[in-house]
């Protein structure tokens, strides 16, 4: 077939594809159903044009169409994996539950230093200074000293907003770094987890020893449910990255890393959402001094139960089914 006949025959088809590809309006689904089929046809046309040595301009045009079509086809298929809601209900718990080993490891690396340091600080009150400077210790003491609390006066809402911003900037930043430094064979994640465990353990131990329990524990119990678990989760995601490099299995190291990162980032979406919630609770609920402690304790306990239940027990069968469906 001569080039001109070829062009005459298919120019309408190419034009249709061109308009479809250049259509910026995402709402129209016209022609999308047949698109994979049409795309294969287009690829054939390109192959024909090349093998028959048709002119460079035609080949270039078809090449460009194929490139655009390829992008369109494979973006469509990867985008269609359910929305945020589906992720929150099934995706995040599924991601957590299929990485139990890393979660246990991360939890151990966080909780053990926490508990040991807490006991140690309660036994020896000088130990806190190995973690914090004396100025910081004094600051922290005055923050939770019940005798300095101006009972009944609500903290101003603008300082709540300030603290909200601080928690987002600081805590989410820590979680992201905890994940990312897992790339170095997990060492960074282990360090961040253990260090935070030690620091929080030391603070808890110190304040408990001083007897500031009725100001400290009501404050932390609420957001702790989201914050502490999220830090552990981010550490687990980081350990997963590091472990894939240490033990790549049948894959190359690079491939193993990419697969584990794809899975680990799902945990990180959830960690991000959890830390937003934690920052909100910490800034606007935990800090409130008008709420009675009984309310804070019961609400805090309820949140802990809720988080644990949601992450590990909620809708077991359907989450398992989702896990299998997406693997």
């Amino acid at each position: 077939m001569k080039q001109l006949e070829f062009e005459d025959l298919y120019s309408e088809f190419w034009f249709d594809i061109e308009t479809l590809l250049n259509n910026k309006n995402k709402d129209t689904h016209e022609g999308l159903a047949e698109f994979p089929q049409n795309f294969r046809r287009l690829c054939q046309h390109l192959a024909i044009a090349k093998s028959r040595r048709y002119s460079a301009s035609l080949v270039t045009r078809l090449n460009r169409l194929v490139q655009q079509g390829y992008e369109k086809l494979y973006t469509e298929s990867s985008r269609h994996k359910g929305g945020i809601l589906e992720f929150i209900i099934y995706g995040f718990p599924a991601a957590l539950r299929s990485n139990k080993g890393f979660l246990w490891a991360a939890a151990a690396v966080f909780v053990l230093p926490f508990v040991l340091m807490m006991i140690a600080v309660m036994l020896n009150d000088q130990l806190i200074y190995s973690i914090m400077g004396s100025g910081d210790v004094r600051n922290m003491e005055s923050m939770y000293d019940p005798s300095l609390r101006k009972l009944g006066r609500e903290r101003q809402s603008d300082s709540d907003i300030m603290m909200f911003g601080f928690y987002i900037y600081n805590n989410i930043g820590i979680a992201f770094k905890c994940f990312a430094t897992g790339l170095f064979a997990g060492v960074g994640s282990l360090f961040v987890l253990a260090f935070n465990g030690l620091a929080i353990g030391a603070v808890s131990g110190h304040l408990t020893a001083l007897g500031f329990t009725e100001t400290f524990y009501p404050f932390v119990i609420g957001h702790g449910s989201f914050e502490l678990t999220a830090i552990v989760f981010s550490g687990a995601a980081g350990l997963k990255l590091g472990f894939s490099l240490l033990a790549p299995g049948e894959n190359t190291r690079l491939k193993a890393l990419q697969l584990s990162a794809k899975d680990a980032v799902k945990i990180m979406y959830g960690v991000f959402i959890m830390l937003l919630i934690a920052a909100f609770i910490e800034a606007f609920w935990s800090s409130s001094s008008t709420l009675p402690n009984a309310v804070k304790y019961s609400a805090g306990t309820a949140l802990w139960v809720l988080v644990i239940y949601y992450c590990f027990f909620f809708a077991r069968q359907r989450v398992t089914a989702y896990q299998h469906a997406t693997q």
């Binding site: 809402s157 603008d158 300030m162 603290m163 909200f164 911003g165 900037y169």
Partner: peptide, 9 residues
Amino acid sequence: KAGTGLWLI
């Protein structure tokens, strides 16, 4: 202070 919070975000 609210501004500081927004700035941190």
